[in-house]
Design a binder for these strands. Structure first.
Length: 181
DNA sequence: TCATTGATTTCA
DNA sequence: GAAATCAATGAT
């Protein structure tokens, strides 16, 4: 056993590229129960269990920002899974997404809730996540990553929130995943 | 239910 | 340039 302790994580397994490169409809529900780890500028390390996610899937999904093509804002979604996609909405809130799937397959899982802080805008505020996290690599970043603690999650699904503009059939796709136990 | 808030996108 | 849009929250 290695007892060396540094700022690297050693308790729990950091999720690597092979996890994120799966389809978003596999990754999004799999993220439930995983531990989101964010290191603060102060040096504190915050750990929260992920409780709610949503899947945004590729150019066909009209609710996905990348469905209209690659722009500076959505560019990171076209990379391989494992990068962080952060964007700003309603003039106040940062949204935290995890890019999934292979390269040139724009997909992302929106982290909608963590234990104790339900709501995508609330969790980023608590964790101190802002635009500087755009493009961070979850497989190598020193300040944000996700760990697997072996927890087996059960969950329910429902339609996604706040995407009525996307129209059918996307409005009713049950691509929101909520941890139940 | 409505005010807040500003980057992105769309229309000229 | 200007106007409309928006994966939200919290106060009323």
């Amino acid at each position: 056993m290695v007892s060396k302790k540094s700022d690297e994580t050693y308790c729990g397994k950091r999720l690597m590229a092979d996890f994120y490169e799966q389809d978003v409809l596999t990754v999004a529900p799999s993220l439930l129960g995983k531990i989101l780890v964010v290191k603060q500028p102060s040096g504190d390390v915050l750990r929260y269990k992920i409780t709610e996610t949503e899947a945004y899937r590729g150019h066909e999904d009209r609710a996905c920002h990348a469905s209209k093509g690659k722009t500076r804002r959505t560019e990171v979604m076209f990379r391989r899974g494992g990068y962080v996609y952060v964007y700003f909405v309603y003039g106040m809130y940062w949204m935290l997404n995890v890019v999934t799937g292979p390269e040139n397959e724009p997909q992302a899982a929106l982290i909608r809730g963590i234990e104790g802080y339900e709501g995508p805008g609330r969790l980023t505020r608590v964790l101190g996540i802002d635009g500087t996290f755009y493009g961070e690599d979850l497989t190598s970043s020193k300040r944000i990553w996700i760990e697997d603690n072996g927890y087996k999650a059960s969950f329910i699904t429902s339609p996604r929130i706040g995407i009525n503009y996307a129209g059918q059939p996307w409005v009713d796709m049950p691509w929101r995943f909520i941890l139940t136990a």
